[in-house]
Design a protein around this nucleic acid. Structure first.
Lengths: 223, 223
DNA sequence: TGTACATCAGTGAACGCGCGTTCACTGATGTAC
DNA sequence: TGTACATCAGTGAACGCGCGTTCACTGATGTAC
């Protein structure tokens, strides 16, 4: 879904031949494991993938343009040929995270039973948050500034909520919006509590987060 | 609970007299509105208050030890006589925020009707989050590291949740924990969505957050 | 097929900044006598 | 009531660091002829 493989021959062979022809200048050869092409080919996508990796490893507040560049294997100035700023890069990361969530919600929306559909949407939401907590924080938190200035981000977020709203309206046409907000708040709150570890030292032990999500939704949505 | 008020006369008058006796040296007089005592008297409390002010103004990720010191009117090294690090200061701020939340929840727990009590707890939780969004993020988010190492913080958090759990058990002894987690997740999720502005550009317009919180809780808690 | 050249996408050095923290210091305070 | 002195709680300079961003540059690419 991410990197459209254009039918361009990889830059790698070209560089390898260069290295070969310059084999006499052995002093210039850097003992690098993976010979790096000068022109990357698809650095924009690589940077976005690297950002996901950095988010997973360092968390949302730990992310740095320099870290992302390093993870992508380029100098820390290179990203500026593809993104105007760190914030612009984060906006695209968040937009794609919303798209991923929307895709997942859309997929489970195929469930014919409207009640079960709501339960699956709830579970999918929590599962997405738990799978990528840093992305989840980036999507909603204040780390990415001026969200309103990124229409694509807004559109992706609206699409995700649209899935929730559609399922709620299908189940209870009269109270669609309220049911949707109830379900979304519940899933969002449980997601945050889980990824922040707020439930860990509580008298109420949580053995199985997925089962808990379902149990709470059953009650809260009147199913 | 924290600073035992020792029967020391405030440093301020002493300094004022000093200023008076040095009135001849007018050149030394700095035209400061509030003549600052060299010894502050209660800098620890002032720093905590200043941290709240900085949080309100700059948000949770914007907070800085230097800003807090400046807001308290002291040099940026002064806080180290009262807190081992910025993180220690934030831990106390978060602990007090949890205590404030617990106080508010305890107060509304006096409501005799158990259903109405749950509704009021829900509303109070959301109101606290909306009143101090940056504190709320600090309490739960990853900005304050190693939360587990601060027993007082943990205790204050447990007490707040204890109020929710007690009210849930009073209303439905059989399903107390599940009801409590449902209510907490709902309130927590709605709080986060509201303070993050996630509902602002949605097809579902939110006119009155308090009414919305009540409406969702009525449905989710089966009241 | 070759060649000249404009353009693209990298590099690495540098800038300025603000941060948390440390340190030697000094003024203020409280106490023993 | 004084005085000497230990201790406390400030100050301001400094350190080292990592950050986002800029800049002049250079290697690689694609295209016109």
């Amino acid at each position: 879904m991410e990197v459209k493989k254009t039918p361009i021959k990889k830059a790698k062979p070209a560089v390898q031949s260069t290295v070969k022809s310059a084999a006499k200048a052995t002093a210039k050869r850097v003992p690098k494991i993976a010979p790096k092409p000068y022109h990357h080919g698809n650095l924009r996508e690589s940077l976005l993938a690297a950002a996901d990796a950095v988010l997973a490893e360092r968390g949302a507040q730990g992310i740095t343009l320099r870290d992302v560049a390093k993870a992508a294997g380029v100098s820390h100035a290179a990203p500026y040929h593809h993104f105007a700023s760190l914030n612009e890069l984060l906006a695209v990361v968040a937009e794609r995270a919303f798209t991923t969530l929307g895709d997942a919600l859309e997929q489970v929306s195929a469930e014919p039973d409207t009640g079960e559909r709501l339960l699956k949407i709830n579970g999918t939401y929590v599962a997405c948050a738990r799978a990528q907590p840093a992305q989840f924080r980036l999507m909603f938190g204040p780390l990415l500034t001026h969200k309103a200035e990124h229409p694509a981000l807004k559109a992706a977020a609206e699409r995700a909520f649209g899935c929730v709203l559609a399922a709620a309206c299908a189940h209870d046409p009269k109270n669609g919006p309220v049911l949707a907000l109830t379900g979304w708040s519940l899933a969002h709150g449980l997601s945050n509590l889980l990824i922040d570890g707020a439930l860990e030292d509580l008298p109420v032990k949580v053995e199985n987060p997925e089962a808990l999500a379902r149990q709470l939704a059953l009650r809260a949505l009147g199913l």
